[in-house]
């Protein structure tokens, strides 16, 4: 007879509080998967928005109909000779209509509207000297405005960063709640088994042995629950309907490639958290049991 297996059995299996730990760990792990996915997606989104917008700019030309072609040609010439500009393309009327369609609807009589002419600019190598370019454009084509998207980019990146902060905060809160539940469950389990503790003490068991006997059971339950919750959360993410490119923000929520390995750390972290919380609780309770 080896001491190991019996050491695992010295605490009775029965007890609803242990099932509470499993259930709570499963629910918390499920939520943690989503919080982690949201955190990673928002970080990815912030990067991609920042990158995409930082390499593009738009020149908007608002001029009288009889002047617009001349000003467009002048702007294109200025852009062609400006260092840091890779390409400049006048946006086709059909593309402008597509941009406005979500707000103004289809069949837009674009000819009837006094829309500005738009030139898409692709930058490279840190882009042009924006201040100098603006001055040149003001001199050559007074109706042209160079927009490097800074005013769009900054709030978008800020929003994505804040979303990531909220997601990380959610992970911390989930960990805190899990820790509290484990602490409560450990405390209840120890209190309900005072007779077991007394017998173990009388046969020479040290606090460390007694605490481990309880902690092992609770931590394993937490691990099993968290593994189930994580699997469920990952399955739910996989089952999310693909909204396609129409809603790019939603399409980005989830994990990509190797980042699918990240949620696998949730059960391990839950186990460590449950172990630490229940061990601290056990020693605290055992101090009060003579």
């Amino acid at each position: 007879m080896s001491t190991g297996p019996i050491a695992d059995l010295v605490v009775p299996k029965a007890g609803q509080n242990v099932w509470l730990v499993s259930l709570s760990a499963a629910a918390m792990a499920f939520l943690a998967v989503f919080a982690l996915a949201l955190s990673m997606s928002s970080a990815r989104l912030a990067d991609s928005w920042a990158q995409a917008l930082s390499e593009t700019a738009t020149v908007r030309i608002a001029a009288q109909p009889d002047e617009i072609e001349a000003q467009t040609a002048q702007v294109l010439e200025v852009l062609r000779t400006t260092p840091g500009i890779a390409a400049a393309t006048v946006m086709a009327q059909s593309d402008q209509a597509a941009l406005l369609e979500p707000w103004l609807g289809p069949d837009l009589p674009l000819d009837m509207l006094p829309l500005p002419r738009l030139i898409e600019v692709t930058e490279f190598g840190g882009g042009p000297d924006r201040q100098g370019l603006r001055l040149r454009l003001a001199a050559e084509a007074p109706g042209a405005v160079y927009d490097d998207h800074t005013r769009w980019r900054r709030p978008l990146v800020q929003a994505a960063s804040r979303l990531q902060s909220f997601a990380l905060l959610s992970l911390v809160l989930i960990g805190g709640v899990m820790s509290a539940i484990v602490t409560l469950a450990a405390s209840v389990a120890l209190s309900a088994n005072r007779q077991v503790i007394r017998v173990l003490r009388l046969v020479g068991a040290r606090d460390r042995f007694i605490a481990r006997a309880f902690v092992r059971r609770i931590s394993r339950r937490a691990l099993a629950g968290a593994a189930g919750g994580t699997a469920l959360g990952m399955a739910a993410l996989l089952a999310l309907p693909d909204p396609g490119s129409a809603v790019p923000v939603l399409a980005g929520i989830g994990f990509h490639g190797l980042s699918w390995l990240w949620p696998l750390s949730i059960p391990a972290l839950t186990f460590v958290l449950a172990w630490a919380s229940s061990m601290a609780t056990a020693f605290h309770v055992l101090r009060g049991v003579t």
């Binding site: 007879m1 080896s2 019996i6 050491a7 010295v10 046969v203």
Partner: peptide
């Protein structure tokens, strides 16, 4: 039997 062996189990001594 497990109860009888408890003093050894609880103190990590071989049985």
């Amino acid at each position: 039997e497990q109860n009888v062996a408890l003093p050894l189990t609880a103190t990590g001594r071989p049985i």
